[in-house]
């Protein structure tokens, strides 16, 4: 029981990972897929942030009287990954706009029908 509660951040990570992955696979709406992808990416961010945290550690700024700091590196890494995630989302949304313009729909099965009816 203690094991479950003391690692709650990892459980949340796993939960978000599965939710996000499931949405990407199961939904046919292109926007919903992007939302799923975002949730999936957020789970990775959370994983990194959990790794970097040190129990009882202060923010990694040198202060007198503080001995224990959190590890800043994973947090910095994940800033980079967040930027990549934002860029991916922006590009994906732009593509969806273009798809909507040329197909008139953002449902995957309808797009499929359009391509095959030609």
């Amino acid at each position: 029981m203690d094991f479950i509660f003391s690692h709650y951040n990892y459980w949340i990570t796993i939960f978000l990972m599965m939710v996000g992955f499931y949405i990407v696979i199961s939904r046919g709406n292109l926007i919903k897929k992007i939302i799923g992808l975002n949730i999936f990416q957020v789970s990775a961010f959370l994983l990194y942030i959990s790794i970097g945290a040190v129990q009882g550690g202060a923010a990694p700024i040198i202060t007198e009287g503080v001995e224990l700091y959190s590890n800043p590196l994973p947090h910095v890494l994940i800033l980079t990954a967040i930027v990549v995630g934002v860029a991916t989302t922006a590009l994906a949304l732009a593509l969806v706009v273009r798809i909507k313009e040329s197909y008139g729909t953002i449902e995957e099965d309808e797009i499929h029908e359009h391509d095959h009816s030609l």
């Binding site: 990972m17 992955f21 990407v24 292109l30 897929k33 992808l37 999936f40 990416q41 789970s43 990775a44 994983l47 990194y48 790794i51 994973p74 990954a81 990549v84 991916t88 590009l91 994906a92 593509l95 969806v96 273009r98 798809i99 040329s102 197909y103 797009i111 391509d115």
Partner: peptide, 30 residues
């Protein structure tokens, strides 16, 4: 116009792949 949908498809699968890679790197770093 299929270029748009194939690019989108690649984006979804490519980003999933990259995120898998990222998670793996996190595990090994930890």
């Amino acid at each position: 116009r299929q270029a748009l949908t194939s690019s989108y498809q690649y984006l979804i699968m490519g980003t999933l792949g990259a995120t898998f890679f990222l998670i793996g790197v996190g595990f090994i770093y930890s």
